[in-house]
Simulated assay, not measured.
Amino acid sequence: MKWWDAVDVISSSGYYPVDSWDEHIQRIKKVVNQWEKPFFFMEAGCPSRFGSPMVPNDWNLNKGQVSEEAQDDYYKEMFSKLDDEEWFGGYMLWDWPARLYGRDQASSNDDYCIYGKKAEKTVHNYYSSK
Rank of each mutant, 00 (worst) to 15 (best):
E69H: 12
N60A: 11
I25R: 03
D58K: 02
V7E: 01
A70I: 08
M1G: 15
M92H: 10
P47M: 14
M92Y: 09
F79S: 10
K30D: 10
C113D: 14
I10F: 03
Y74S: 06
P53Y: 02
Y15R: 12
V9S: 04
Y74P: 00
A98H: 06
A70P: 12
E85K: 09
W96A: 15
E69A: 11
G64E: 03
K118P: 00
K63P: 04
V32A: 05
S52Q: 09
V18C: 02
S80M: 07
A44F: 00
L100A: 15
K76G: 13
A106N: 08
I25N: 10
V18I: 15
E68K: 04
Q65S: 02
A119I: 01
W94P: 02
Q34K: 15
D111H: 10
V66F: 05
D58T: 01
I28E: 15
D19I: 03
K117G: 00
I114E: 00
S13H: 10
S129C: 04
Y15F: 15
K76F: 06
D84L: 03
M54A: 13
K130F: 10
P97A: 02
G102W: 09
T122D: 03
Y16S: 10
E68V: 01
I28G: 06
M42P: 02
S13D: 03
H124V: 07
A98M: 03
T122E: 08
Y115N: 12
W3G: 07
F41Q: 06
I28F: 12
K29E: 07
F39K: 01
E77P: 01
C113F: 04
N125M: 05
A44S: 15
S20D: 13
